[in-house]
Design a protein around this nucleic acid. Structure first.
Lengths: 333, 333
DNA sequence: TATTAAAATTGAAACGTTTCAATTTTTGGG
DNA sequence: CCCAAAAATTGAAACGTTTCAATTTTAATA
């Protein structure tokens, strides 16, 4: 590997000048030319480790998500990439594997790796210790979920109104008995979506039936159990609002197994992942999150912090969701 | 940030000894204790850049895939993570954004970043220049696709037999007129799957009808157009084998639009992504690829190369696919 | 106890940059 | 053409490790 010294020698200038050139400072035209020629002929590329050692910058950001194969997460990552790659930042991906312990470990790992910043989608809203990281000057931006007692920049969706609009739509189609598959109580987005549900019912003067509110793990079995539970109610709901992707998909699975026709025997509105849900017959009504934008905005805030701009801290962005309305929710009049 | 010098001073030994300790060499029990105490009380963690500068190792591998939001890719990444993370390797993700140019750029980027190795899923099988990378000693392992005239370690699926088993199953259910949505001719996996199709027809003495073979881009519009084309044939096929995920999903979309019932009016067998396809009614027959295993095996080979073991180069692994048979392919007797 | 071999430690050089005080070159006004 | 000011360049120190030849300590043997 060629070094800056080789370039300096060949171009007949000092290493300092080469360094100045590389970092975009003004140098004499004549020298610029010589250096560029030397770099070209030596195929020189600067060594990021040596540079990092001096500058304490790795040009790397860590992205820590609950699970890599989650489509929502990868769409967010695409957004992050879109912003960071043109600036030559690398993205180190870490998965917490849906566990708080995993998250803690990976955070420590990223800190030790000297990333310039971290974008974090927390596994739980209940608990997060980033003091060690924040103290050492590494900025952290939260996505999708806020965490209790944690003052950090964040980009989340307006889950309350996302859920509200879905439930409102269901009500407007004539439903009164609306079940909700709500997520775990310690997850921020789940809380918000439940709030939206409750608020909509309240605004439309529909009495709240506790039996229609089922808390489920945001995963496969959670969805299956919750849907079954709602279906086995003596006075069962006519419509169900399922508040994330796995619970929605698995509700449909049960629906199919029980021979229930979506939009006929039972109405369903889901969350996330529009493209896929539109393949079904009828397509599934869903609340769509702007996942890519979340990534873009988070990356932009992070960059700002990395560059030392701590204005308006903590900056919390709430992005609007979009509602896709289909015949999966039956019109009752 | 504390350095090895601080530790040395506090533990009253030399920096060399601390370094030896950190790298797992034997040191006197007494010193070990003092060093461990010092590290603990100073909260010392070693600086990866300084280390990297000396050792020329970043403990980072690059993963370059066509597109991040592709589920197949992310499952592969999960496998890679499973192997690499326990060894403290970081994973830098790059997306080629489905373009050869993007791939070339990202390869250069990864080389410049001094990654210890690269796992690459090529965007095309036609062309790949990694000489610069290989020459500089960075091992590269290909996944999913081989590239013409490219001697590299690789982990791929046995696409020929994967496709063969699917077509064989379709034949065994009594179909004779079997269409295939084949991928672009320059993609390795597409070629192989077409080979499997042809071989199965041959083995069962079914004449090959060129009109039943449609080459399509492996994306949304490709799938839509191809399916339409097959459906508009005067003597249209009774079953269609769609050879990747997007073409399968979009064939279903057209099917739905045209009011065709899968497994009744037209039979379909797809590729990839079982979980989702099992949600439909009927579930979709598919060839399933062991995506996670691909990642695991690729990471293991890469590690071997990183550690200087170049035995059995180039090592090409072919993993077996699995066939899921459902009523989406009608039994004709 | 003396001697030697083996084991452990030491301290400085090296890795390839950036940075900065000191120096040289260039520029422009008189 | 000279001089001062401005601009550009220089060269060495510093970043925090690893590595290795030289040295010291320990263990083993007679």
């Amino acid at each position: 590997m060629k070094t800056i010294k080789d370039v300096a020698k060949l171009a007949d200038v000092s290493v300092g000048t080469v360094s100045r050139y590389l970092n975009g400072y003004k140098i004499k035209e004549e020298n610029r030319k010589k250096i560029e020629e030397a770099i070209e002929s030596l195929q020189f590329t600067s060594n990021p480790m040596a540079r990092g050692l001096r500058t304490n910058k790795t040009f790397t950001v860590g992205v820590l998500i609950p699970r890599i194969s989650d489509i929502f997460c990868t769409q967010v990552i695409e957004g992050i990439e879109e912003v960071l790659n043109p600036l030559n930042y690398g993205i180190v991906i870490c998965s917490a594997n849906d566990s708080l312990q995993g998250q803690t470990e990976k955070l420590a790992y990223l800190k030790n790796k000297c990333v310039d910043g971290i974008i974090l989608m927390p596994v739980t809203s209940a608990e997060l210790d980033v003091t060690g990281i924040v103290d050492s000057g590494i900025p952290v931006v939260l996505i999708d979920r806020l965490v209790k007692d944690c003052e950090l920049d964040a980009v989340v969706c307006d889950n309350v109104n996302g859920a509200y609009s879905a439930v409102e739509m269901i009500i407007n189609k004539g439903h009164q008995k609306i079940g909700i598959i709500a997520g775990p109580q310690e997850i921020y987005t789940a809380q918000e979506r439940l709030t939206g549900y409750l608020r909509a019912l309240e605004d439309y003067n529909i009495e709240i039936n506790e039996a229609y509110i089922v808390h489920a793990q945001y995963n496969k079995t959670g969805g299956i159990d919750a849907f079954r539970q709602l279906m086995s109610l003596p006075d069962r709901p006519t419509a169900i609002f399922s508040t994330n992707y796995p619970t929605t998909v698995n509700s449909m699975k049960v629906m199919m197994e029980q021979g229930l026709r979506m939009g006929e025997d039972i109405s369903l509105c889901g969350y996330d992942q529009t493209e896929l849900f539109q393949m079904f017959n009828p397509p599934v009504s869903v609340v769509v999150q702007p996942s890519r934008e979340i990534g873009i905005n988070a990356a932009e805030i992070l960059l700002k912090r990395i560059n030392g701009d701590y204005s308006r801290f903590p900056q919390i962005q709430r992005l609007k969701t979009q509602l896709i309305v289909t015949d999966s929710v039956k019109t009752l009049f």
